[in-house]
């Protein structure tokens, strides 16, 4: 066990001479590596079997399908009306992104700069929609939206998806706003700029990186958001995740392969978004708002 202290990266960094940790397999590392490998096998198996099946002709009780084809992709496109599904996904995400930034950014400015009575309560209110799981508030929300005729169509899907997105923008933007130097705004105010001008000319340019990060996180979450969209969408307002779920749960008239073809398209879309997202944000940020040191 003593070699842990040598190969341990935290302790390692004291010695300036050596950069890479020494590769010595201690019991802990065996366990850790075993776990990593097992996890990767499950992940690869899960993704891989969807991918292989989507290209397979028939696949029954064998390692590989008997022959490969790309016909399922064309089938899936027409069968599931995917051009409409992708259009809906795009419109919903775009609207949610825009509205949540418009609502969230001004609010986070106030929360970052001002102290006022009731601020704690307001912070709690903005935190709750992230803490409570979507199904719990989604059912009352969908019921309320149906009551006003707002659910079962695009507006309902957009409204429902705003519920976790706006708080998420506020939670991401407030700390970002806090680290901007307020003396810049004060200087502009001294020079006679009003709040509107300060927002447009001083804050906006400084906020672009933060808004990009918040926006991309909202994008990933909205495209992947199943529960809320599922509860509020109608036939012509399904996003891709919901269409995927519905086609899997529908009776077995459809070939499993074309469902998997749709799944692969969804997967590709998510991976592209993820790759774009990782250009702007840290992987950890996709999970929760955490301050990480810049060098990581």
């Amino acid at each position: 066990m003593s070699s842990i202290s040598v190969s341990d990266p935290g302790v390692e960094s004291v010695k300036p001479g050596r950069r890479t940790p020494r590769i010595v397999a201690t019991p802990t590392q065996w366990v850790v590596w075993g776990g990593v490998i097992a996890f990767m096998i499950f992940l690869m198996g899960t993704v891989g079997s969807v991918l292989v099946n989507s290209f397979g002709r028939t696949w029954f009780n064998s390692w590989w399908p008997q022959g490969f084809t790309t016909q399922w992709y064309g089938d899936a496109w027409t069968q599931f009306n995917l051009s409409q599904v992708f259009l809906v996904t795009l419109e919903v995400t775009g609207a949610v992104l825009l509205i949540s930034l418009l609502i969230g950014v001004p609010a986070s400015y106030v929360l970052a700069r001002k102290n006022f009575p009731g601020k704690g309560l307001l912070n709690l209110l903005f935190l709750l929609p992230i803490m409570v799981p979507p199904i719990t508030y989604g059912i009352p929300l969908a019921t309320a939206l149906y009551r006003f005729g707002l659910a079962g169509n695009m507006s309902g899907v957009i409204l429902a998806n705003l519920v976790p997105s706006v708080p998420f923008v506020i939670m991401t933007m407030t700390p970002f706003m806090e680290q901007l130097d307020p003396s810049l705004e004060n200087a502009a105010r001294m020079c006679g700029a009003g709040t509107g001008v300060i927002f447009r000319r001083i804050l906006m340019p400084l906020l672009v990186p933060g808004m990009l990060a918040a926006g991309i996180l909202v994008l990933v979450r909205t495209v992947g958001m199943f529960e809320l969209t599922f509860l509020t969408s109608g036939n012509s307002s399904q996003t891709i995740v919901v269409a995927l779920f519905n086609s899997m749960n529908a009776a077995g008239i459809r070939a499993q392969q074309s469902v998997d073809a749709m799944a692969v398209m969804y997967m590709l879309m998510m991976l592209v978004i993820l790759l774009v997202a990782l250009k702007f944000v840290n992987p950890t940020q996709l999970v929760a708002r955490v301050k990480e040191s810049p060098q990581d």
């Binding site: 992940l43 198996g45 993704v47 992947g224 199943f226 995740v241 995927l244 799944a263």
Partner: peptide, 29 residues
């Protein structure tokens, strides 16, 4: 490594379930 771990979160529960159905099934890998 962290990017690799984010992949299942990004893919979401629906796709994970579909993949696991294939992977863990009686005739699965």
């Amino acid at each position: 490594v962290t990017t690799m771990l984010v992949v299942p979160i990004t893919l979401g529960t629906v796709l994970t379930a579909e993949g696991l159905l294939n992977f863990l099934g009686n005739a699965g890998w």
